[in-house]
């Protein structure tokens, strides 16, 4: 059953990504060149809606969170390496699959590269586990915990900040 839920959820997400042109190299590089914020608009709207929905259901005791540990060494160094690669490839792992679906043949090479990248990481993992992945290990941490605040006092200002960012994008016609 899990598998069918996964396929259906992915398919609906794929339709939305495709219809908004978020899958395209041109849109992804557009954001990284600060010329076209389509993917950022899509992403931040998803985050705000998802945040309100998930935390609402959490308060009702209907869902569980699945927070990844903050390991600053891994998050920061890995994040920067990902970003450099993302600038070259112009797809992220999820959108590469979608881009191939809409006929973008370069996404095939991107996916192949990503599989090789995963294999190389598996080779390096034992050494990384003793070094980078021990740097700045803060455990499973959320912003409300860091700030010692109720989560709605973080979600509210975050939503306002996102709306202000959107207004700026629209004013600058990005």
């Amino acid at each position: 059953m899990d598998l069918w839920y996964g396929l259906a959820t992915g398919a609906l997400f794929g339709v939305l990504l495709q219809r908004c042109e978020v899958l395209r190299y041109d849109r992804q590089l557009g954001a990284l060149r600060l010329r076209d914020m389509t993917i950022v608009k899509f992403m931040l709207t998803t985050v705000v809606v998802g945040m309100i929905g998930v935390y609402g259901l959490l308060d009702l005791g209907l869902v569980k969170l699945s927070v990844k540990p903050a390991v600053l060494g891994g998050n920061i160094i890995g994040g920067l390496i990902f970003g450099l690669g993302w600038g070259l490839v112009g797809y992220c792992p999820g959108t590469a699959a979608g881009a191939l679906g809409e006929g973008r043949l370069d996404a095939f090479w991107a996916i192949l590269g990503m599989i090789v990248g995963a294999a190389l990481y598996a080779e390096a993992y034992p050494r990384l586990l003793e070094t980078v992945l021990t740097w700045g290990d803060l455990g499973k941490l959320t912003l409300p915990q860091v700030l010692g605040m109720n989560h709605w006092l973080v979600i509210g200002p975050f939503a306002v900040l996102v709306i202000l960012i959107f207004r700026l994008f629209e004013r600058l016609r990005l």
Binding site: A70, L88, P93
Partner: peptide
């Protein structure tokens, strides 16, 4: 680019879906 992106994503323990969407919407520091 794909090699670099995936190596980085695994080191960071997630990609724009896992961290960018799922992580931020749970307000996780990572």
């Amino acid at each position: 680019g794909g090699i670099l992106a995936m190596f980085g994503a695994r080191l960071a323990d997630g990609c724009p879906s896992g961290h960018g969407l799922s992580g931020t919407l749970q307000l996780s520091v990572s």
